[in-house]
Design a protein around this nucleic acid. Structure first.
Length: 935
DNA sequence: CCCGTCACG
DNA sequence: GACGTACGTGACGGGA
């Protein structure tokens, strides 16, 4: 018989989220030894819970106890103010699967575990505090969250669990300058940048407290705002009265949050040793298990690890890969068993097989899963009958022994979306997109390709077959063995199920093994942060952009193609006339022979293949000497390039279902952290010539929409100014003056006003050259000036800006010593060729100088992109493209200004809080009906 | 399949 | 003093 809660009782309410985040940040990224499941925050959480229920002052011992969690990010406050908590970054990927485990941990300790849909933990804590106080009992809120301080008083106190310090009315007054009953008024005025509570601009806690103190309460203050003496403050309060009232609603905690349990049900209970030990053993917490066992006088259960992670210190060889162990999953019962095992383990390697490489078109053929060495399976779903050319009506018949696609997807769906199950893939963006098109969301995710990239960019590529050979010593079955190559190539759906299963399940197992290989290396080699912050979060962002695609005016391109074809035909005729006979103008070989043998022109340079060079450089020189043929060939080439690569090719990339063009971004394609765009490449659409720029007119916004382009101004030079710490350059960027003119002025001692454009052009070339690891030869060629002159410019440049030489020397020395360089944000790029001798060393040296600069710029735009979806989620806008220093959006006409404001803000502040740059980042914006207008 | 060429940042 | 050379990409057509 439980006694009614009342006088003499003491309810403790633990703020669960605070415990979790505290535990997560206080501990290194521990993983469960048997399978690598991230578990650090759970360990810390259990430790804190245990200490809490064991320790404490006897007089303050709880009689009733509950841990309260936030249920989800969306609450009723978002209906009042959509931007509430909009700035919150999503929880780290390796923390997300731990959230459900902390709930389990709470229940394992036999403590009430409370969360309510649509409410924050704070709301439940408030309602419970009111109820307990009204019943005559005492309450202690275990949290240091200032939002809860309004609840203090009348038998309700707070305890800061980190400092182990009581928070009473005096402490609240110290923090807010007012008593607990006026805390919300002060918060409403001051706002909160962390939760994105707007408040009144320019008013902080100090001013707010002073105003509330003077006028008594918020409503009185707002009503009598006209009486305020300071004109600016008076106007702010009058202008923002509504926003302030909304802010108050956001911070106000009410007593009437619905509770579907009684205070009595929170009565402190002893843990059930068996349940608690079972949980701790499953998590493989040795110390905690022992401690709890000791406390209960029980024998600590032996922790058996199913598998052992291979580490450098204790490398345990896994058995070799054995394809005969794999299972083909043909019915729902077997699939359900596998999914149960996956849910229990909390981790799975996954791979999808499809009919093609274009993930916007390919159909799913099968899914493979792996939960451990030798424990892999393949679910065939779309294989066609063996030898069957099709049924009587021409449609392909499905092979026997496959479960219906819809059933398999329905069973997979909750597991793929389960926050507590980590999904590991190799290039998992591909699988995410295939599954997303079938209505399946996948998360949280890990990607072995990205792990390899974080560890070894610059060292080698990151395809699975290569990684498997290098790190597992295992040669994968080449896909060509199954589908052939060239003309006789077949689709994966035509591969017999048994054969496909071996191949597909092997891929999943290799992925699983690679994950176990790479995961401990990330923190050991100090690239875990780069992986977590710069690589992994890109997956959902890019998947969304790629699936959005961009609208193309194919007719516009086709018209251009026809016009180009006519021009080319005319030029061809003219060229043949000049050459004295027909030849293939597109053949450098034939052209070289005509120019340098038949016509006997000078300047013929033969490369290593023995062929004459006919590059634009060479032809331009010849044209400048007055020869017509090379000039016409240059014209022809320009048009030919535009036609074949753009106006002809782009319309073929329009997706039949969406009517848009969907590029694919490679996250690991470039060594520096830049993205690479393929199929089609939308990062090299012409812009430098008027004719080329017309191709951008074909990239159009939908009806009622606009294209917006936002690009960083001079980002690499700004980064150079920061990393090399060049005072003159930094000051120029702070003052917003023309950077190339400034450089020229410093170098040649001429004033910026009325500067010869030629002088500025030279300075600009040097500024860019520096970023690339300048050489006299390269600059001479770029500027078409004698090499000695170019060298003299460079010498002057280094004299004027000695910090640049120091930076270059420093970077090369670092690369030689460590074998890698790092960007400001911790991205690591290996420099394998740096210690070579001979000509190859020059290239490696320049690459090492360039990588931290190009890489930091890439890091910054990645950071912006990762924050962008959340920042613009309430706008009718989509992020479509990235072109290294530019982001392209499509937005409804009415929201253009909002988008520019918000996206620019995200981009300009993207370096923070990781790095506070010494120079400002500036973003230029353009709007139009198409990309040409917007750029 | 490699090479030369050329589009972009 | 000679090597070779601006940094990072992807797509196309020609030709073996």
């Amino acid at each position: 018989m439980t006694e009614a809660f009342g006088k003499g009782h003491h309810l403790h309410l633990i703020d669960g989220s605070a415990f979790i985040f505290r535990a997560y940040h206080a501990l290194p990224p521990l993983t469960r030894k048997s399978d690598g499941l991230p578990i650090g925050a759970v360990a810390g959480f259990c430790n804190m819970l245990w200490k809490y229920i064991q320790g404490g002052k006897p007089s303050d011992q709880p009689t009733h106890l509950a841990v309260i969690f936030d249920h989800s990010s969306k609450t009723f406050r978002n209906d009042i103010y959509p931007l509430y908590k909009a700035n919150r970054p999503p929880a780290p990927e390796d923390l997300r699967p731990q959230f459900p485990l902390t709930r389990e941990a709470t229940r394992a300790h036999n403590i009430a575990c409370i969360e309510t849909e649509g409410y924050e933990a704070d709301d439940i804590i408030a309602a419970l505090s009111c109820k307990a106080r009204d019943a005559g009992g005492r309450v202690t809120i275990v949290s240091s969250d200032k939002d809860l301080m309004q609840l203090v008083g009348g038998g309700v106190g707070m305890l800061d669990p980190i400092k182990n310090k009581d928070i009473g009315p005096d402490e609240v007054r110290e923090k807010f300058g007012v008593g607990p009953d006026r805390v919300v008024d002060v918060q409403a005025l001051a706002g909160d940048s962390v939760d994105n509570v707007p408040g009144a601009p320019g008013i902080g806690i100090k001013t707010a407290a002073q105003l509330i103190d003077e006028y008594g309460d918020l409503e009185t203050l707002l009503e009598r705002a006209v009486e305020i003496k300071q004109p600016k403050r008076r106007q702010t309060l009058i202008d923002n009265a509504d926003l302030i009232r909304i802010s108050k609603q956001l911070v106000q905690l009410d007593c009437d949050t619905p509770l579907d349990f009684t205070l009595e049900s929170l009565e402190l209970r002893d843990p059930d040793p068996e349940a608690l030990l079972d949980f701790l053993t499953r998590m493989e917490f040795r110390t905690l298990t022992q401690r709890v066992a000791d406390r209960f006088g029980a024998e600590a259960p032996v922790i058996v690890e199913a598998a052992t992670v291979a580490t450098a210190s204790a490398k345990v060889e896994l058995p070799p890969i054995d394809r005969s162990l794999y299972t083909i999953i043909r019915d729902e019962t077997v699939l359900a068993e596998w999914l149960a095992e996956i849910t229990q383990k909390g981790i799975v390697a996954i791979d999808t097989e499809t009919t093609g490489l274009d993930e916007m078109q390919a159909d799913l053929v099968g899914v493979s899963l792996c939960t451990g060495p030798g424990r892999a399976a393949y679910i065939p779903l779309g294989h066609v009958g063996e030898g069957a050319a099709g049924d009587l009506f021409g449609g392909p018949t499905l092979a026997e022994g496959q479960m219906p696609l819809e059933r398999a997807l329905a069973l997979l769906k909750p597991v793929l979306a389960d926050e507590a199950v980590l999904k590991i893939g190799q290039n998992i963006k591909y699988d995410c997109k295939i599954l997303a098109r079938l209505g399946l969301k996948m998360g949280p995710i890990e990607d072995t390709m990205l792990m390899s990239y974080a560890l070894n960019a610059g060292e080698h590529n990151h395809g699975m077959d290569e990684l498997s050979e290098t790190y597992l010593g295992h040669k994968c079955v080449p896909i060509k063995d199954l589908i052939g190559s060239g003309k006789s190539q077949i689709g994966f759906a035509q591969v017999p199920v048994e054969r496909a299963g071996e191949y597909a399940a092997e891929d999943a197992e290799v992925t699983w093994r690679l994950w176990h290989h790479f995961r401990p290396l990330l923190s050991r080699e100090h690239v875990a942060t780069a992986y977590e912050v710069l690589e992994r979060p890109m997956v959902p962002v890019l998947a969304e952009m790629e699936m959005a695609g961009i609208r193309i005016d194919a007719d516009h391109l086709r018209r251009m193609s026809s016009a180009f074809a006519q021009k080319m035909a005319a030029l061809e005729e003219e060229i043949h006339g000049l050459a004295g006979g027909p030849f293939n103008v597109g053949s450098p070989k034939q052209l070289g022979e005509i120019l340098f043998e038949r016509m006997g022109l000078s300047g013929g340079k033969q490369g290593k293949t023995g062929a004459f060079s006919t590059s634009a450089d060479v032809l331009e020189d010849l044209a400048a000497e007055g020869h017509d043929l090379p000039a016409r060939v240059l014209d022809w080439r320009g048009i030919s390039k535009l036609k074949s690569t753009y106006t002809d090719a782009l319309p073929t990339h329009v997706n039949a279902d969406t009517g848009r063009v969907h590029t694919s971004y490679s996250i690991t394609g470039a060594q520096t952290g830049r993205l690479a765009s393929t199929d089609p490449n939308l990062q090299n659409i012409p812009v430098r010539t008027d004719e080329g720029r017309r191709i951008r007119e074909a990239f159009v916004a939908g009806p009622g929409m606009k294209i917006i382009s936002l690009d960083y101004s001079q980002i690499e030079l700004r980064i150079l100014a920061h990393v090399a710490s060049i005072p003159a350059l930094k000051q120029a960027f702070r003052d917003g003056i023309d950077i190339h003119a400034m450089t020229a002025s410093q170098m040649f001692g001429v004033p910026v006003d009325g500067m010869d454009p030629m002088i500025r052009r030279r300075a600009k070339a040097i500024n860019f050259g520096v970023i690339y690891g300048i050489s006299g030869f390269g600059l001479a060629r770029n500027l078409r000036i004698p090499r000695a002159e170019a060298q003299a410019f460079i010498d002057t440049y280094f004299e004027r800006f000695p910090e640049i030489r120091a930076y270059m020397d420093r970077t090369v020395a670092e690369a030689k010593q460590d074998g890698f360089v790092r960007t400001l944000f911790g991205r690591r790029i290996k420099t394998p060729g740096i210690n070579q001798s001979g000509p190859a060393a020059g290239g490696a040296r320049r690459a090492a100088i360039n990588a931290p600069i190009q890489g930091a710029a890439a890091d910054i735009i990645r950071r912006a992109m990762i924050r962008m979806p959340d920042a613009i989620r309430d706008l009718p806008a989509k992020m479509l493209l990235q072109v290294h220093d530019e982001l392209v959006f499509e937005v409804e006409e009415g929201a253009v200004d909002d988008l520019i404001r918000i996206a620019r803000d995200v981009m300009e502040n993207a370096a923070e809080p990781a790095i506070k740059l010494d120079v400002p980042l500036i973003v230029d914006a353009g709007v139009g009906a198409n990309w040409a207008e917007a750029h």
